[in-house]
């Protein structure tokens, strides 16, 4: 069992509090993604698990054992770095064999395991090359092979796909998902890319300013964001967030009239996802001038504006209209409205 428990961990750099008292349990075999914008503390949290950063307070438990004072090599972890962290003076084979060599595995066994692992990530033809002779995707595979060759209890992956081009990222994402399914190793994955988080994770921990603001399944986080930050961060294009007031059971903003079942209140933000809106003939909930049309291939993103209000909807790929003409959007059947408090960001409904 390779469960990871963070108990009230805290990280300070001088007077700067990078990660304030946080707790998190990562289940055995789980794929947990730490998601957040740059500087939110996700990499620091991972580095604390790895033992590359000392923790200021709290405890880190791996497989039920407190590892605060254990060096990285004794935590039974393997890590894949954003910039691969390959040894440039070694061949692919030597890179993959290195963790085994350090653990005193016999040469013949080392060789066999390195070749098996290389085959698993389709590197078997490149074993005698140096990292400088490989493409970005191939380097990333070497880093993966080096991590899995030792069959560790926990994988830590720090934005491993961020240096790859968009197409390769999608391929590698699928490979990572398959690899996790095959190996079943507990994995902690850091990314700022919400698409990676949604597609890979069993659970996502959304972080902001060092705190975990929501920890749940990707589905739940998408459907019920805990606050305004998560609502704006998850989803592509992101959720429409419209400032307004609720009076007489109606949410009102410039060009927006949406019936809402809640008492009168000022300073609220209405949220609705673009894919839950459709283009309507007239007299709809959202009315304004057509501001932009963006064809994405399978659909068209339609943005309308009314004063300061801007609303985006995912429309049919064939939709065409003139810019600055009147445009109306209506929620689809079963569409879900979210309401947040503007000041605190807290979810109201």
């Amino acid at each position: 069992m390779a469960e990871v428990r963070l108990v009230d961990i805290e990280k300070k750099y001088g007077n700067f509090l990078a990660v304030p008292q946080q707790s998190l349990t990562i289940e055995d075999g789980e794929f947990l993604v730490l998601l957040g914008p740059s500087g939110c503390g996700k990499t620091t949290t991972m580095r604390m698990i790895a033992g590359l950063e000392d923790i200021t307070a709290g405890d880190i438990m791996i497989k039920g054992e407190r590892v605060n004072d254990k060096p990285p090599k004794d935590r039974d972890i393997a890590m894949v770095f954003q910039n691969y962290g390959l040894y440039p003076h070694m061949t692919v084979r030597q890179n993959i064999e290195y963790p085994l060599k350090l653990r005193g595995v016999a040469k013949a066994d080392r060789r066999k395991r390195a070749e098996e692992t290389a085959a698993k990530v389709e590197l078997d033809a490149l074993l005698e090359r140096r990292p400088s002779e490989l493409s970005g995707g191939q380097r990333q595979r070497v880093a993966l092979a080096r991590a899995i060759v030792r069959t560790p209890s926990i994988f830590l992956m720090d934005e491993p796909l961020s240096n790859l081009d968009a197409k390769l990222r999608v391929t590698m994402r699928a490979e990572l998902k398959h690899l996790h399914h095959e190996l079943g190793v507990t994995t902690v994955y850091v990314t700022h890319d919400q698409m990676e988080a949604m597609t890979l994770a069993n659970r996502v921990a959304v972080m902001r300013e060092g705190r975990i603001v929501q920890l749940d399944t990707p589905k739940k986080i998408y459907a019920e964001p805990a606050d305004l930050f998560v609502a704006g961060f998850i989803g592509s294009p992101s959720m429409n967030l419209i400032d307004g007031t609720v009076s007489g059971g109606v949410f009102r903003a410039e060009g927006v009239d949406v019936p809402i079942d809640m008492p009168d209140r000022e300073g609220v933000v209405l949220g609705i996802r673009p894919e839950e809106l459709e283009i309507a003939p007239g007299g709809a909930a959202f009315t304004g001038k057509l501001y932009a049309l963006e064809l994405t291939g399978d659909s068209t993103l339609v943005t309308l504006r009314a004063g300061k209000t801007s609303v985006c909807a995912r429309g049919h790929a064939d939709f065409e209209a003139d810019i600055n003409t009147d445009c109306h959007l209506a929620p689809k059947d079963g569409a879900r409205f979210h309401l947040f408090d503007r000041a605190s960001g807290e979810r109201l409904i």
């Binding site: 590359l52 990285p72 090599k73 040894y87």
Partner: peptide, 18 residues
Amino acid sequence: IPRETEEAARIDGASNLR
């Protein structure tokens, strides 16, 4: 020298001298 190579070695099990 990228910091990651050193950290990777530390995780792989290398001593400071190594």
